[in-house]
């Protein structure tokens, strides 16, 4: 079965998945740090309850802290905007390393792994830029007509048609943006497998997608769809842990829950990427696309 062998490799690379997760956490920390400092500067740690008081139900001190920190938070936004390219680069590096590792047969030799990752990285960045522009354009193209349709239909049948138009717009936007994201992953896989150019990888990725769009979409959705309930369940679990109450174990449990979600998301992504690698490596360039 195409991809099955590569998925098996993904499962056999837990340390690589963990490394990708750590890289993402590191990049996230770089993004979060300016905001964290802005909030800490309000003197929240001066209270006996310290930051646990920010999580007291009702959010009185949380809202007050955010209000007081607002000028610093705006500055932090500027800093974060400067840090963001670096954070994205680190995340892209993690992804390139992960995909290279999954695509490497047998034992992973660090030097070879690093060299293949560094070769793939510039093309990953090129793909990232191209597909981000495409996704942004799609979002823009969906929002305008949806808003227009919503306004035109609002008031007809109590707004039911406007609702339908809104949901339809969201659906079309989500599906098309996700499809573009899926094609981007296929293009990344092609970069790793064939080490082709960005343009050639995009062209081939579209062809691979056109060949079995439903199967690829199902494989992608089966993994991506699990992340959302995991996030919601984590939110409920952390609510139950209630970090506003005393006990350091509470925030440690919250940390464990949240990081488990992030690790799970990375593992699910690795599983999908293994499928993508399998799909591109088994693609028969002579066969016509399915209808």
């Amino acid at each position: 079965m195409p991809g099955g062998k590569n998925e098996f490799r993904a499962r056999r690379r837990p340390f690589v998945i963990a490394a990708a997760w750590l890289l993402k956490v590191g990049a996230a920390y770089a993004l979060a740090a300016p905001f964290l400092r802005a909030v800490q500067a309000t003197g929240v740690a001066e209270r006996p309850g310290a930051d646990s008081e920010l999580f007291v139900p009702g959010g009185l001190l949380l809202v007050e802290t955010l209000r007081l920190a607002r000028p610093d938070l705006i500055l932090a936004l500027t800093t974060a905007a400067l840090v963001a390219p670096f954070a994205l680069l680190v995340a892209e590096l993690g992804l390139a390393a992960l995909m290279t590792a999954i695509a490497t047969p047998g034992r992973l030799v660090p030097e070879r792994w690093a060299s293949r990752t560094l070769v793939a990285l510039p093309r990953f960045i090129g793909l990232g830029v191209a597909f981000s522009l495409a996704q942004g354009g799609l979002a823009f193209a969906c929002i305008g007509p949806t808003a227009g349709l919503f306004a035109a239909l609002d008031g007809v049948q109590g707004g039911a048609y406007a609702d339908a138009a809104f949901l339809f717009g969201i659906l079309v936007g989500s599906v098309s943006i996700s499809a573009v994201g899926l094609i981007e992953d296929l293009a990344r896989a092609l970069v790793v497998v064939e080490q082709g150019s960005v343009v050639r990888s995009i062209g081939l990725a579209i062809a691979v997608f056109r060949k079995t769009p439903l199967r690829l979409a199902a494989q992608w959705l089966a993994r991506s769809a699990l992340v959302l309930p995991a996030i919601l369940l984590a939110a409920l679990a952390v609510d139950a842990v209630d970090v506003s109450r005393t006990g350091a174990w509470r925030w440690l449990v919250a940390l464990a829950i949240h990081q488990t979600v992030l690790l799970l998301a990375t593992a699910l992504r690795a599983s999908w990427l293994a499928r993508a690698l399998g799909a591109v490596s088994s693609y028969d360039r002579a066969a016509p696309a399915s209808r």
């Binding site: 996230a28 993004l31 909030v39 994205l88 979600v261």
Partner: peptide, 22 residues
Amino acid sequence: STPRLSERMLYAAALLLSWLGP
């Protein structure tokens, strides 16, 4: 120290990065 705040902001940033990033 402010571990709860750090933990929560780190998680939020990681989710944002997962959503907007690669």
